[in-house]
Amino acid sequence: MSESKTAPATVVSARPVVLSAPGRGEDLQVRVSAPVSDSDLPVIVFSHGFGWSMDGYAPLADFWAAQGFVVVQPTHLDSRTLGLPPEDPRTPQIWRIRIEDLTRVLDGLDVLEASVPGLAGRLDRSRIAVAGHSWGAQTASTLLGARVLGSDGKPGQDMSDPRVKAGVLLALTGLGDTLTPFAAEHFPFMKPSFDTMTTPALIVAGDNDQSPLSTRGPDWFTDPYTYSPGDKSLLTLFGGEHSLGGVPGYSVAETTDENPARVALIQQLSSAFLRSALYPEDTSWKAAATALAEDPEALGTLQSK
Rank of each mutant, 00 (worst) to 15 (best):
residue 155 P to I: 04
residue 175 L to H: 11
residue 176 G to T: 06
residue 262 R to F: 05
residue 116 V to D: 01
residue 289 A to V: 09
residue 48 H to V: 01
residue 160 S to K: 11
residue 288 A to R: 06
residue 159 M to W: 13
residue 90 R to K: 14
residue 9 A to E: 15
residue 232 K to A: 07
residue 128 I to Y: 02
residue 63 F to S: 14
residue 249 G to I: 00
residue 246 G to L: 03
residue 149 L to F: 05
residue 177 D to M: 02
residue 180 T to M: 09
residue 231 D to E: 14
residue 156 G to Q: 02
residue 230 G to R: 13
residue 225 Y to H: 13
residue 149 L to W: 01
residue 299 L to N: 05
residue 277 A to R: 06
residue 32 V to G: 05
residue 27 D to M: 08
residue 5 K to F: 13
residue 207 D to Y: 06
residue 141 S to E: 07
residue 106 L to W: 01
residue 218 P to I: 04
residue 230 G to Q: 13
residue 57 Y to C: 02
residue 280 P to L: 00
residue 272 A to H: 07
residue 11 V to C: 02
residue 111 V to Q: 13
residue 255 T to D: 11
residue 255 T to F: 05
residue 65 A to M: 00
residue 254 E to Q: 11
residue 281 E to K: 14
residue 290 T to Q: 15
residue 90 R to N: 05
residue 137 A to G: 07
residue 3 E to I: 14
residue 288 A to V: 03
residue 198 T to W: 05
residue 143 L to N: 08
residue 34 A to G: 04
residue 136 G to D: 06
residue 155 P to M: 09
residue 189 F to A: 15
residue 200 P to M: 10
residue 238 F to L: 13
residue 96 R to C: 04
residue 22 P to E: 14
residue 2 S to I: 14
residue 195 D to G: 13
residue 26 E to C: 10
residue 168 V to N: 06
residue 68 G to Q: 09
residue 291 A to G: 02
residue 21 A to I: 09
residue 138 Q to G: 15
residue 193 S to K: 03
residue 19 L to I: 11
residue 208 N to P: 01
residue 88 D to S: 12
residue 128 I to H: 02
residue 297 E to I: 06
residue 189 F to Y: 15
residue 215 T to R: 12
residue 235 L to C: 07
residue 271 S to M: 04
residue 224 P to L: 12
residue 59 P to M: 12
residue 181 P to Y: 12
residue 190 M to H: 05
residue 224 P to N: 12
residue 197 M to G: 10
residue 252 V to P: 08
residue 62 D to R: 04
residue 118 G to K: 03
residue 240 G to S: 12
residue 270 S to D: 03
residue 239 G to F: 09
residue 285 W to V: 04
residue 208 N to D: 15
residue 205 A to F: 10
residue 144 L to G: 04
residue 225 Y to F: 15
residue 235 L to H: 03
residue 24 R to D: 11
residue 250 Y to P: 07
residue 135 W to N: 13
residue 207 D to T: 07
residue 12 V to Q: 11
residue 20 S to D: 15
residue 257 D to Q: 09
residue 268 Q to N: 13
residue 235 L to W: 09
residue 95 W to S: 12
residue 304 S to P: 00
residue 173 T to M: 13
residue 140 A to D: 06
residue 258 E to R: 15
residue 304 S to K: 11
residue 136 G to K: 01
residue 253 A to P: 03
residue 81 T to R: 14
residue 263 V to F: 04
residue 279 Y to W: 10
residue 219 D to E: 15
residue 277 A to Q: 11
residue 154 K to V: 13
residue 160 S to M: 09
residue 146 A to I: 05
residue 245 G to W: 07
residue 228 S to C: 06
residue 176 G to Y: 08
residue 287 A to W: 06
residue 191 K to H: 15
residue 286 K to C: 08
residue 296 P to H: 03
residue 164 V to C: 01
residue 290 T to F: 00
residue 177 D to E: 14
residue 208 N to L: 14
